[in-house]
Design a protein around this nucleic acid. Structure first.
Lengths: 205, 205
DNA sequence: GTCGTAGGTGTACGGCGCACGCTTATATCG
DNA sequence: CGATATAAGCGTGCGCCGTACACCTACGAC
C-alpha cells in the first residue's frame, strides 16, 4: 500500500564498502555512505538503526564469500588451514574494513557458522572438552592477531623500515631482524605462523 | 624567561587514564582530558600535537610498568612466557586502553625494547634468520589476538552466553563448546594457548 | 620594574551521529 | 479513475568531536 523500498541491506553494504575501498576507514560515515547512494543521510535510518548497524552490515558483506564447508578427504590440520586462510583472504579483499571485522567479529551469522565448522573439524580430529575450546580460541587468536598485524604494516610499511634504522648498539637484534623480515612475504609469514600453532596443538590423546 | 610549564606528559597521561578507567573509551576526548586537568581544552595543545599524540602518551603510560629484563636462569620458553605475560598484565590493568594499545603498539619505546629482549631470548635459544622472525611474529600475533579477545568478551560476557543459547540442531558444536568455555578462566585460556604456540615452535635445529 | 616569551583561554568552523517533524510517492480500495 | 493511508525520503538542528587562530597573562631575566 505505501511507497516501496528502493534499497536493500546489500546495496547499502556495497556502497559502504565502495567508500571504504576508495577513501579509507576514516572517510566512512553515515553521510558519505548516503551520498554514495545518492540519498539523504537520514534516509539511511529507514534501513539502519544506527552506525553500529551499518558496521555490522559491512562485516556481513565481507564474510559473505567465506565458504564454511570443508572437504572431508583432508587431514584435520589442512582443513583448519583452509578455513583460516579463507577468512584472511576475505579480510585482505577489503583491508579498510579490518577494524570493523575485528570489532564485530562475532556479530555475523557466517562467522558463527565458520566457528561451528571449525569445532566440528577439531572434534573429528579427537579434541574434546577444554582442549577443544582452547585449541579453537588459540587458532582464532592467532588469526585475529595476524590480520591486525598485516593491516597495520600495510598501512605503515615504514614501520619495519624504521626499526631497521634503529641504532645498532642499542637494538642489535631488532635491526637485523627487521632487515630479514622485510624480505618475507605476508603470505609466507602467515602460513608458517599458522603451521607453528597447528604443530603446537599436536596430536590429541 | 617565560612562564614555566605546569604539566608534564606524565600527568597528562595519568589524567587520560583516569578518564578511561572511570568513564570508558568512548568518553575519551581532548575536552574530557582537559577537564580532568582543570584546564581549557586548547591548553593541551601546548603539550600535544593532536589526539594521536595523546593516544601515544597513554600507550607509553600503560607500557611503563612492563619490565623488559628477563632472568637468565630459565628456559627460553619460560622467558618468553614471562615477557608475554607482563604485557597481558599491563593491558588488563587498563582494559579501556586496549584499543589504543593495539593501534599504537609499535609507537612506544618500551614496546620496542620488549621486542628486542624477546628476539635476544629467541636467538639464545637457537632461532635464527627467517625462523626467528616468524617465531617472534607468531608469538606477538597470538598475544595481540588474545588481548583483543579478552577485551571483547570482557565487554560482552553475554557473547558466550548467546552462543550457548543457539539452536541445538543447527549449531551443536558451538552450543556445547560455549558451555564448557564459560567455565574456563581467562588466565587458564591464555596460559594454555600460549603453551600451544610455544610448543609449536619446537626445538630449533 | 620592564619586557619578551611561552603558557593558557575563548571563539569558531567543519565534521560527526542522530532525533524529530515535514513532504512525497505509491499500492490499494471505493 | 480518484482518494487515501502508509511508509519512504528529506531538512533542520542539537550536542558532541578535533583543532585553527587570535588574544590575554604570568613569569624569569635583565
Amino acid at each position: 500500500m505505501p511507497r516501496p523500498r528502493s534499497l536493500t541491506t546489500d546495496t547499502i553494504a556495497a556502497a559502504a564498502i565502495a567508500v571504504l575501498d576508495r577513501d579509507g576507514y576514516t572517510a566512512l560515515s553515515m553521510r558519505t555512505v548516503a551520498r554514495e547512494l545518492n540519498m539523504s543521510t537520514m534516509a539511511l535510518y529507514r534501513y539502519l538503526a544506527d552506525r553500529d548497524d551499518l558496521e555490522r552490515l559491512i562485516v556481513d558483506y565481507v564474510w559473505a564469500p567465506v565458504d564454511v564447508k570443508v572437504p572431508a578427504n583432508r587431514s584435520w590440520d589442512e582443513q583448519i588451514a583452509l578455513l583460516v586462510g579463507r577468512v584472511r583472504t576475505a579480510a585482505k579483499a577489503h583491508p579498510e574494513a579490518v577494524p570493523l571485522l575485528l570489532r564485530h567479529r562475532q556479530a555475523s551469522a557466517r562467522s558463527v557458522a565458520w566457528i561451528e565448522t571449525m569445532l566440528g573439524v577439531l572434534a573429528d580430529a579427537g579434541f574434546s572438552g577444554n582442549a577443544r575450546v582452547i585449541a579453537q580460541r588459540t587458532i582464532v587468536n592467532y588469526l585475529v592477531g595476524a590480520i591486525q598485524s598485516e593491516h597495520l604494516s600495510a598501512l605503515d610499511g615504514a614501520g619495519t623500515a624504521a626499526l631497521a634504522a634503529l641504532p645498532r648498539d642499542e637494538f642489535p637484534q631488532l635491526r637485523e631482524t627487521a632487515r630479514i623480515a622485510s624480505r618475507l612475504t605476508p603470505d609466507t609469514e602467515f602460513r608458517r605462523g599458522l603451521a607453528i600453532v597447528l604443530n603446537g596443538l599436536g596430536v590429541p590423546d
